[in-house]
């Protein structure tokens, strides 16, 4: 871990301004992913701006019947919130399917959105990785890729987004609220927040330098039955091979988003129109043009079968 300066921020706008003018600055909140990566010098910030004392830890109802979740609301608290459990159960289910109790006590809403890939080559500084070191190559292509992406990949990167919470956020059409270094704010639709790797896999999302997430808002509840089915080799404390977030209405219509499949939460609205026809029809559209490797081709039938299980449960 490189040495770094450490500052506690006093307000969100000050934090953003400080981050923009300080070379090599990064925000730290829960730290559960950032410190992990700093120990391996995959992240090497020269300056950490601790945002934990900013009062961004509340969940409030919005005027249009939704919820505004402060950026620093801990995963445990978000999952345990009575309104979330009642109206956005898919979000609670996604959060509690991830990591461990200890990590969820620490991890924050904003930080979880910024979680970086678990690609083993990204995690090994001896190996080429365009995400870690642009231009160095991708060792995952042609390497051990069982966990990695099957769609939306590029010649530069086949990493997956590893999180669970964001899959539900994507399903719910959440909005990410930020403050920029100049003090202005903006709202980013979650669909536009995470990126595909393309030629610039080192850029995970559309945040600008110094831009700080202040909240994530959820539109009014969707009703319906909520599911988050996470498939993995061990029963807990593991990243998803495939996960399916879904809200299914009584008439069989609904929404579905997939985790473990791509560099970002994978939701294809056109596929949702096919949900009443069944999992195969929806999956065909959702994963059209998929580019799996030998190691991870199983994810395509797995995603379809997992969706079928969800739809079967929704019917029953």
């Amino acid at each position: 871990m490189k040495a770094f300066e450490y500052t506690r921020a006093s307000s969100p706008a000050d934090a953003a301004a400080l981050a923009a003018k300080t070379p090599g600055a990064k925000f730290i909140a829960g730290g559960t992913n950032l410190l992990d990566l700093m120990k391996l010098e995959i992240e090497t910030p020269a300056h950490l701006i601790d945002v934990n004392k900013l009062a961004l830890d509340r969940i409030e109802e919005t005027s249009d019947g939704g919820l505004r979740i402060g950026a620093l609301v801990r995963n445990t608290d978000l999952a345990a919130d009575k309104r979330v459990r009642r109206d956005y159960a898919v979000l609670t289910r996604a959060i509690v399917a991830g990591a461990s109790g200890q990590l969820r006590n620490k991890a924050t809403t904003a930080g979880n959105l910024l979680q970086r890939t678990r690609c083993p080559y990204f995690y090994d500084p001896n190996q080429p990785c365009n995400k870690r070191k642009p231009g160095s190559g991708c060792a995952a292509i042609g390497g051990f890729s069982r966990q990695l992406a099957v769609i939306g990949t590029s010649k530069a990167c086949i990493a997956t987004y590893p999180g669970d919470m964001a899959i539900a956020m994507r399903l719910l059409d959440a909005t990410v609220e930020t403050v920029k270094p100049d003090g202005s704010t903006r709202k980013i639709a979650i669909a536009d927040f995470h990126r595909l790797p393309g030629d610039t896999p080192h850029i995970d999302n559309t945040l600008q330098t110094g831009e700080l997430i202040t909240a994530v808002t959820l539109p009014k509840p969707l009703g319906g039955k909520h599911f988050y089915h996470k498939v993995r080799d061990r029963a807990s404390y593991a990243f998803a091979l495939v996960s399916v977030a879904a809200v299914v209405q009584k008439d069989g219509t609904g929404r579905v988003a997939f985790g473990g499949m791509a560099h970002k939460p994978w939701r294809v609205e056109a596929a949702e129109a096919a949900l009443p026809k069944g999992a195969a029809a929806a999956a065909r559209i959702a994963f059209a043009g998929a580019t799996p490797t030998h190691d991870n081709a199983f994810k395509l039938p797995l995603a379809e079968r997992t969706l079928a299980a969800v739809l079967s449960e929704a019917r029953g």
Binding site: Y123, G143, S236, Y237
Partner: peptide, 21 residues
């Protein structure tokens, strides 16, 4: 990794051992 000759999943997140569940 048969190209570079090492065990790729070389930590406790990558090499899964049973958990309580």
């Amino acid at each position: 990794d048969k190209r570079f000759g090492f065990f790729v999943n070389h930590d406790l997140a990558g090499y899964e051992v049973p958990v309580h569940a």
